[in-house]
């Protein structure tokens, strides 16, 4: 019923692109997945706001046609479907892209019809808002965790298991020394996760509905 589930926001953007130009996008998408193209993804990874995101370019013929009873699509444009699962508010996300990796972003949306480019910000805001589809049901397996938390958890748990395997039966002095070394190794991952703070008016609305529901349920 909402774009928000805990610390994650579900963004859907559907934009038209001329069918022959979508190949350029596809080439670019192929390129960034190769070693030389990785630089384009470095900015995305460093932003560290995203769990998973994806782009799917669907040509008119690729719209699923399941049965003769279903009318065939008569559209001419191809459509790019963008899906993101990110931490923070809509504005934080869009603004971060705009300031941190505008070039990469513009390549992702190359040749989309009337794409205004990600700089300056206001036309870009308007473009995303206009082409965004609201999510009807959003599910997140870990509403308390950001993408940073998931990555930190993987790092910390690996080190913790290894430490326990090797050192749990050391003599106490050695144990403490190794334990301190463990803490230094995982210090960047030690933190407590709590429910998300309220970061926008829509997050506030979600929170109010939730607390209303739990009141009703407990009554």
């Amino acid at each position: 019923m909402s774009n928000i589930a805990g610390k994650s926001y579900a963004m859907n953007v559907v934009t038209p692109a001329k069918w022959y130009l979508t190949w350029l996008n596809k080439l670019f998408f192929g390129f960034v997945q190769l070693p030389g193209g990785a630089a384009y993804l470095k900015g995305l990874l460093t932003l560290s706001l995203i769990h998973y995101a994806r782009w799917a370019i669907v040509s008119p013929k690729q719209f699923p046609h399941l049965d003769p009873s279903q009318p065939k699509e008569t559209i001419k444009y191809s459509y790019m479907f963008f899906f993101s699962n990110f931490n923070g508010s809509w504005a934080q996300y869009v603004d971060s892209f705009h300031t941190a990796i505008p070039g990469g972003l513009d390549l992702f949306w190359t040749k989309n019809v009337k794409y205004p480019k990600s700089v300056p910000l206001q036309p870009f805001h308007a473009y995303i808002t206009y082409n965004q589809v609201w999510t009807n049901h959003y599910y997140n397996a870990y509403p308390l965790a950001s993408s940073n938390d998931v990555k930190n958890a993987q790092h910390l748990s690996g080190k913790l298991r290894a430490f326990n395997d090797v050192h749990s039966n050391d003599d106490p002095q050695d144990f403490q020394q190794a334990y301190n070394a463990l803490l230094l190794e995982v210090q960047g991952a030690i933190s407590i996760m709590e429910p998300t703070p309220i970061i926008s008016l829509s997050a506030q609305a979600v929170e109010e509905r939730l607390s209303h529901e739990s009141e009703v349920n407990s009554a």
């Binding site: 996008n25 596809k26 998408f29 960034v32 997945q33 993804l41 995305l44 990874l45 932003l47 560290s48 706001l49 995203i50 769990h51 998973y52 995101a53 994806r54 782009w55 799917a56 370019i57 690729q62 790019m80 992702f108 397996a141 870990y142 308390l144 965790a145 993408s147 938390d149 998931v150 990555k151 958890a153 993987q154 910390l156 748990s157 996760m193």
Partner: peptide, 21 residues
């Protein structure tokens, strides 16, 4: 088909992600 799938997180089974959290 996805033209690009971006993994900004980890790729373990969910059970492991949850246990690690």
């Amino acid at each position: 088909n996805n033209s690009l799938f971006f993994n900004g997180s980890t790729g373990e089974p969910l059970e492991e992600q949850l246990k690690n959290l």
